[in-house]
């Protein structure tokens, strides 16, 4: 479903992705972890071309991202993206945040879009917040609205870029629960996160990145219990020690 073929990316002279090869299958949940600056956010931001790449190729459902005739807008409509900072539209209510793209990009009528949005708000556990503005929602509620907004386009793939890193500890679980449910329903997901409990329970495969490369890749069991690279062991000992 998602394929990276020797992808390289530079920010100026900084080589942030070094020859990445990766396949994510339909229905697979892949967690990407690694120290900050390792390129993990960049990696998933390349999937819907929020970041351009300088060499190599990324294919989504067999479509090349570098193809000049590619309809990028249509492709992005199929890929949900959830940001660390939520990025809800502050001038719109939760309901309006969710219905905007279905109405404008998919030309769905307002009543129909609102019906979808109401169902999604129920699904993420905040049916009573439809009329609230982002400023009046907690971080965890905002992130759940953001997930509902992405789901409203009925995407085939969901990408999460450190979805819980900006949240207070007591709100992390409410977001992770929504994500676990989604994974349980068979959504194809790529998740950048430091939540190792989530990775262990939900991921089919864990990637460990360092300095722009994927240096470890495996099932949660092998990843946590029998990592091959010393760099991975060092990382795990740091984050699992307490």
């Amino acid at each position: 479903m998602i394929e990276f073929q020797s992808v390289n990316k530079w920010y100026g002279s900084l080589h942030v992705l070094r020859g990445i090869n990766l396949r994510i299958e339909k229905g697979e949940v892949v967690v990407v972890c690694g120290p900050s600056g390792s390129g993990k956010s960049t990696l998933i931001r390349c999937i819907n071309r929020l970041e351009p790449i300088q060499s190599g190729e990324i294919l989504i459902d067999g479509k090349r991202l570098s193809d000049p005739s590619l309809d990028l807008t249509a492709l992005r409509a199929e890929i949900g993206f959830v940001f660390q900072q939520f990025n809800l539209y502050p001038h719109l209510s939760a309901m309006e945040n969710i219905v905007l793209a279905p109405m404008k990009a998919r030309k769905i009528s307002r009543p129909e879009a609102e019906e979808i949005a109401t169902r999604l708000l129920e699904r993420v556990g905040i049916p009573d917040k439809a009329a609230s503005y982002p400023a009046n929602l907690s971080g965890g509620q905002q992130q759940r609205v953001a997930i509902a907004r992405a789901l409203a386009m009925q995407p085939k793939i969901m990408l999460f870029d450190e979805p819980t890193s900006a949240l207070d500890p007591e709100m992390i679980n409410e977001v992770l629960e929504v994500m676990s449910d989604l994974a349980g329903e068979g959504m194809t997901m790529a998740v950048v996160t430091h939540e190792m409990g989530f990775a262990r329970r939900v991921a089919h495969r864990i990637l460990f990145m360092d300095e722009g490369q994927i240096i470890e890749e495996g099932s949660p069991q092998t990843f946590f219990e029998n990592p091959s690279s010393p760099r991975t062991k060092q990382f795990l000992s740091k984050i699992l020690s307490h």
């Binding site: 940001f83 793209a101 907004r149």
Partner: peptide, 11 residues
């Protein structure tokens, strides 16, 4: 991030 969010939803 506002533009990124909007374009990610297919606008």
């Amino acid at each position: 991030g506002q533009a990124e969010a909007a374009m990610s939803t297919g606008l």
